[in-house]
Computed example of a mutant assay.
Amino acid sequence: MLARPLAAARRFRRVLLLAAGLLAPALAAVAQTVAPEAAAATAAAPAMGVQTVMFWFLLATLGLVLLIFGLLFVLLVIKMKPQLRRLYELPTVHATWSGKVLGLLVGDPVLVVGRDKDELMNHDYDGITEFDNDLPPWWKYGFYFTIVFAVAYMVFYHVTYTGDLQAAEYETEMQQAALLVSADDDDPNKLTTYTALTAGPDLEAGTTLFATNCAACHGTEGEGKVGPNLTDDYWLHGGDINQVYKTIKFGVTSKGMVAWKGKLSGKQMLQVSSYIESLRGTNPPNAKEPQGEKEAPVITAVSH
């Protein structure tokens, strides 16, 4: 009874050796066939380095070898499935871990899903009973993996500080983005660091410029007409001094707000922006309803 499975195992080993012997000439032929094509590709694309060509050639060869081995393995398993099943049913093989791996080849997934004991425990509540079964191996292996992953994550990010945390990644991305910002003053993506002007002459100049150029749309007191109300804490394009400056300079053409660059100097646009900042909270009569997002007012006392 024991001789047949052992003989089957010996035959399986001989088949593997024979397959390896047959595969060697095939791989040599494949290499001879692919080599001229690789040489032609190298000549056609001189810009590619020889190392790059060799890397892809070796990678393709490796993929082909693995594919051939996989197909041979599947064919051998299908051909020898009866012998493998008899070998798997041996008591000395069936209960071992390697035997369970062999069971996957013959259609028994006990290694992955486990085996139900079908033994009832002494728990009975309202006619509901409980089986004494272990957790499925796939669940336990997944749980073990999460433990290993958590330890590796903690060591990588919080012990050795090899990886960047979210704050560090954000700073790195912002630095990279800053490199893409043009140094040209006409670039709408350029970041400015202006603070609101608080000197009397600057605010007076801003008041005059506002009355001349902005009051027609925003009202003489910033209460809003065609344009939005500038005296509340709600803003469509940002209420910070630099955001207001950007809106004045580049405009919002889709909403009828013209760009004032080229018509006003940088100093004048900052004076108007500072005057608009000073209007917040003045609550003029007949103010237009709020529009946009609410922002907390920023109090600044630094002059430009």
Rank of each mutant, 00 (worst) to 15 (best):
A196L: 08
L22F: 13
L66H: 00
Q166M: 11
L76H: 08
E173N: 13
L264I: 05
M48P: 01
A216C: 03
A40R: 13
Q32W: 15
Q166E: 13
P201T: 03
S98N: 10
V244K: 08
K100Y: 03
V50R: 12
P290V: 06
D186A: 14
P109N: 09
Q291C: 04
F156C: 00
L102M: 12
L59T: 08
G222C: 06
M269S: 05
V30A: 11
D233K: 00
K140H: 03
L58H: 04
T212N: 13
P46F: 06
G49S: 15
E89K: 07
E119W: 02
T92V: 14
A38Q: 10
H158G: 03
S254C: 01
L203D: 00
G206E: 06
V151E: 01
A301W: 10
A199K: 08
R85N: 07
D240N: 13
A287H: 01
T300R: 05
W260T: 10
T61A: 14
V15D: 08
R4G: 08
R11P: 00
V148A: 14
A178Y: 03
L58C: 01
L197C: 07
N189F: 11
L230R: 07
P136C: 06
V148R: 03
T129L: 03
G200L: 13
M48A: 12
L27G: 07
I276E: 02
M80V: 04
F69D: 01
A26R: 08
N242D: 09
L197K: 11
